[in-house]
Design a protein around this nucleic acid. Structure first.
Lengths: 237, 237
DNA sequence: ACAATAGTGTCTCTGAGACAATATGCG
DNA sequence: CGCATATTGTCTCAGAGACACTATTGT
């Protein structure tokens, strides 16, 4: 049989396959806290439990897994986050009561101001501080997925400025440093922090300043591709 | 409707889902070259093309995706590699001629000597030097997957000794350094290389030596969990 | 002037890069 | 001994850590 014939007669429905979905851990930084977007489940199983935004691939609408993720995130927040990265894929026989299930997990970052409007609309979506998550029961294995996403983001705080995507387009250096400190879980020497960012020329001074409290802070924005930059030396965890 | 009823009546076959498979990039180091295990496809589509070892999840046999990967690798090599890590998940409408397809990719390392026997049996499996891959046409998007796996391994050579899993259990430091040099694509100062490994206490001196050429080299083996260790400072790429 | 926060100067310390010097096997 | 390869000594240099100091706003 040649390939054309094979493909014509191929029926994938003959094979039983796992469920396959996507889930996103969308982080933001607000009120000095790292927060994660949770949505209340409106369907079985785990109805009414809070979980990660996600859903099934729509093979008509979505050309790729990333499309599915962006579509699902946009449904909840009305916007597409500036940073979306694939995290890991989890799949086993027991994570979903409906049976063998595979989920492709993504980690994303967005400025709080850029999607609070979207969220306010949706009464079943909320920003939850990651510190308060320990006690909560989440749907499926979403608690574990968030833990992995958090650990990865924490690592990135040590060797990149990727966390900056959780801030507004313009931000101050002390603000970014605070975010990194929250992630790393300890204080950073401001000199060290500034030095490395300046040397790598990752940020652009907008010329504007933020007035608040003491001396005004310069407002910066990320340069193109600063998210890809990695320092050769970590801030020691 | 309560959850129990929901689950009883739930029929996932009502929904059309993508194909889902796993693929592994198994690396080894032999003859001063980094090699990757390829298998010749015995089925449509892409029949007779070389590709990565992989296959479909068997929901009866496999309790998790990792089970699938290990099962498929063992079928080809008769052994389970000491290092297996999830790499990325690729999924879109066009990567497989049979339709919307998702594949979960893994990267694995093994000592050449530990599976050459297994491979010899299987006439449709072969170690291929990664340098010679550029020209070849591989099945599906496996060429691209290998590129990603390689890039990830290259990064690990800069900040860990994970590549050591591609060597026999006992190996010499010059041997490990050579492997890292092949990965990084440039020479490393042997003093720097040794210093960091010694400081982090990642290897254990077996007391044995390898005689070959000049002064005999001490044989080391990895300590428990040395694969997880990351240096705070990279060997600069 | 003082409080509050932003930003700098500068010293120390760790660890990578460079490369010369030594050590240990072989013939 | 001389060759080949392994292993160590040691100097330099980049960049993080520490922390004191200066700068710029508001009250």
């Amino acid at each position: 049989m040649d390939e054309a014939t094979f493909l014509k007669t191929y029926d994938k429905r003959k094979f039983d396959t796992p469920l396959i979905s996507v889930d996103s851990t969308l982080f933001t930084y607000h009120d000095h806290q790292l927060k994660v977007l949770l949505v209340k489940r409106s369907n079985h199983p785990d109805l009414d439990l809070w979980g990660l935004p996600g859903g099934f691939i729509d093979m008509q609408q979505d050309k790729s897994i990333r499309d599915t993720v962006l579509r699902k995130l946009e449904e909840k927040t009305k916007v597409i986050p500036p940073y979306v990265e694939q995290l890991q894929c989890v799949g086993d026989a027991n994570r979903d009561k409906r049976g063998w299930s595979v989920t492709v997990c993504f980690s994303a970052l967005i400025a709080h101001q850029d999607c609070e409007v979207g969220i306010a609309d949706v009464s079943d979506a909320a920003w939850v501080a990651v510190d308060t998550l320990k006690d909560q029961t989440l749907a499926f294995d979403h608690q574990a997925i968030i833990t992995v996403a958090l650990e990865r983001l924490r690592q990135k705080a040590l060797y990149s400025i990727v966390p900056a995507y959780a801030l507004p387009e313009q931000f101050t250096l002390p603000e970014l440093q605070q975010l990194h400190e929250v992630l790393i879980g300890k204080t950073i020497q401001k000199k060290s922090f500034r030095r490395r960012i300046e040397q790598a020329e990752l940020l652009e001074d907008t010329g504007e300043k933020r007035y608040e409290g003491g001396r005004p802070a310069a407002l910066y924005k990320m340069k193109e591709a600063s998210g890809e930059y990695t320092f050769v030396r970590n801030l020691e965890g």
